[in-house]
């Protein structure tokens, strides 16, 4: 590479970059292309649909409660994200900034929980949720995920890294822990909270196995498992399946494009469930 003259290296670099990006994005582009085709046009060669039409979207929305699925996912993901931020901030603060008996033991406990994957707990958790009568409800989708060991760990590490003076000053001003957390720690933790929020939202939005087993009522399905539903109904109508998939992609895609920094920081920070 170093032997190439500079006037040649630059264009070659861009060419390679462009081809690579194109290949990576191509499966998505071909999905988008299929969603704008009629069923008759599905197999017409070329990336661009010969006669672009919104017919597949109309059909997907008319035959399947896609907006309801998306709303389910949105409600569940937002609730989980808020819950995780709240429980991570409170317990993280307690572990980083409060002194109480058994604190290091508790921290060790949280760290230990980091090692337990969802795939191991989902069967007994299913039995528990069943016993609670939560099958086919938002409770089942939300409550088990409101506290995240990773979130607690990350918030604890972040709050621990803040200078002690700030907390001393708050104490001298007579602020209790809750006020200190709300007025001193959280404003400073805004970037960390944003990253954790993005990570939690993405993780919740992507959940697949859990909603699959706790939800079997159609109108309670989240967008992810609804795709499987749409696919099994629209066996050969790939344009309709593609339209449904694009509709499910749009929210996370928009969120990613708008809050790319928070997403990237969240993934770089926690990176457990990309």
């Amino acid at each position: 590479m170093s032997s190439l003259p500079r006037w040649l290296a630059r264009p070659l670099f861009y060419l390679f970059l462009g081809v690579y990006a194109w290949l990576l994005v191509l499966p998505l582009l071909s999905l988008v292309s299929a969603s704008f085709r009629t069923e008759a046009d599905l197999f017409t060669p070329g990336l661009l649909p010969p006669q672009p039409t919104l017919e597949a979207y109309r059909e997907a929305l008319a035959k399947h409660p896609i907006l309801r699925y998306l709303l389910n996912s949105l409600a569940v993901s937002l609730a989980i994200t808020l819950g995780v931020l709240l429980t991570s901030a409170t317990l993280g603060y307690a572990l980083a900034r409060v002194r109480f008996a058994g604190q290091s033991l508790l921290f060790g406990f949280v760290v230990g929980l980091l090692l337990i994957p969802d795939e191991v707990t989902f069967l007994p958790r299913y039995l528990l949720v069943q016993e609670l009568g939560w099958i086919n409800s938002y409770w089942a989708l939300i409550v088990p995920f409101l506290a995240s060991p990773l979130g607690i760990f990350l918030m604890r590490q972040f709050l621990k890294s803040l200078p002690q003076d700030l907390f001393d000053a708050a104490r001298i001003d007579g602020a209790g822990h809750l006020r200190t957390l709300w007025y001193v720690a959280l404003p400073l933790a805004a970037p960390a909270l944003g990253a954790l929020g993005a990570l939690s939202f993405l993780g919740a939005w992507n959940m697949y196995l859990w909603p699959l087993v706790v939800i079997n009522q159609n109108e309670m399905k989240t967008a992810q498992i609804a795709i499987a539903q749409v696919q099994s109904v629209e066996v050969s109508s790939w344009n309709v399946v593609a339209a449904a998939a694009v509709l499910v992609l749009l929210p996370t895609l928009l969120a990613f494009l708008l809050a790319q920094r928070a997403f990237i920081r969240g993934i770089a920070l926690g990176g457990l469930k990309g």
Partner: peptide
């Protein structure tokens, strides 16, 4: 190019699966 290369993080597993189901039709 960063946006394009990082883009798949924003693609839910189910959408990725459907996209490839069609891509490999």
């Amino acid at each position: 190019f960063r946006t394009l290369f990082f883009l798949t993080t924003a693609v839910p597993t189910a959408v990725a699966a459907v996209a490839w189901g069609w891509y490999l039709h």
